[in-house]
Design a protein around this nucleic acid. Structure first.
Lengths: 149, 149
DNA sequence: CCCGATTGGTTGTAATATGCAACCACATGG
DNA sequence: CCATGTGGTTGCATATTACAACCAATCGGG
């Protein structure tokens, strides 16, 4: 189906999730799911991808427990795709991707959409990494540490 | 080269970055770059991917200004690949991916590496999205808002 | 009910990307 | 200079993706 993870990276928390969301479309599907899209046709219309590809991606996301199928909410016999708890856990990642995109992929003259706080209608804060004591951490301030099994 | 963005999503800050990092390998290359890898051979050894693929990915990342080539730091005539400012901007995204991976892709019995604060050696805080007034935001507390060009 | 349209797919098949191995130019080290 | 390491490129086989046609089940109106 999707690229299989190489043995050498099998232990890495960065590499392993890529089996689930490491292809071009999956993150866009998840983004649309956060935007409230649920039906096969809605995703297809929104993304404009071939139906067989969408079918394969949805299947992969369901297999990886990012989405799950539920009976249609309108009472029809069709099914809908909704985010699981694990899928909802992708929210910070999607926000990080969005903020990076806003920062570096748009000319000042170009318009783009922004994520805002529903209550106030104001843009959200920037994601930032902090230590447990609250210090702001740059990449150099961190390293990866092995942990016993 | 890599998948071309569809017209309908050209304005979306989530979709546009995928041209640069939307394939299976690029994020792993960037992860290794954050870990201090700089040379072609280092990346190849770390990732175990074919040299032509690595070559294509590095080229793409350089074209998208995520990496840049610089003269080798050891004085030899070779070149090295280092993160640009834009590339360094991927740090929160990588941390988000890592945290999601740690949360959902490992059995409790499995060991995995963890990102720690260099100064204290303690795990970093969890990334979280907050409003400008500091409230913690869940996906439902946000929406995307069009902004004038 | 019956019929046409919609939904949600599954097959083809052609184009594209990926992976592997061989090859090669240049740099380097002795 | 000669042997080796570095950093690639090129061919070729295979896997993945895209596009289009087809299709079964469902739904909606009369």
């Amino acid at each position: 189906m999707v690229k299989r993870i190489s043995h050498r990276d099998a232990h890495c928390p960065v590499a392993r999730p890529l089996d689930a969301i490491g292809d071009w479309w999956s993150l866009l599907i998840v983004r649309d799911a956060f935007d409230g899209l649920r039906r096969f046709g809605e995703f297809q219309k929104s993304l404009g991808l071939a139906k067989n590809i969408l079918s394969a991606r949805l299947k992969n996301l369901v297999e990886h427990d990012v989405l799950k199928t539920v009976p249609a909410s309108d009472g029809s016999a069709y099914q809908e795709y909704v985010l699981t708890e694990k899928g909802r856990g992708l929210f910070p990642l999607l926000v990080a991707l969005r903020q990076w995109g806003e920062d570096y992929f748009f000319q000042p003259s170009e318009g783009h959409v922004t994520l805002v706080d529903r209550k106030r209608g104001k843009p959200v804060r920037r994601l930032e990494l902090r230590a447990q004591d609250g210090r702001l951490l740059e990449p150099e301030d961190t390293y990866v540490k092995a942990r016993a099994s």
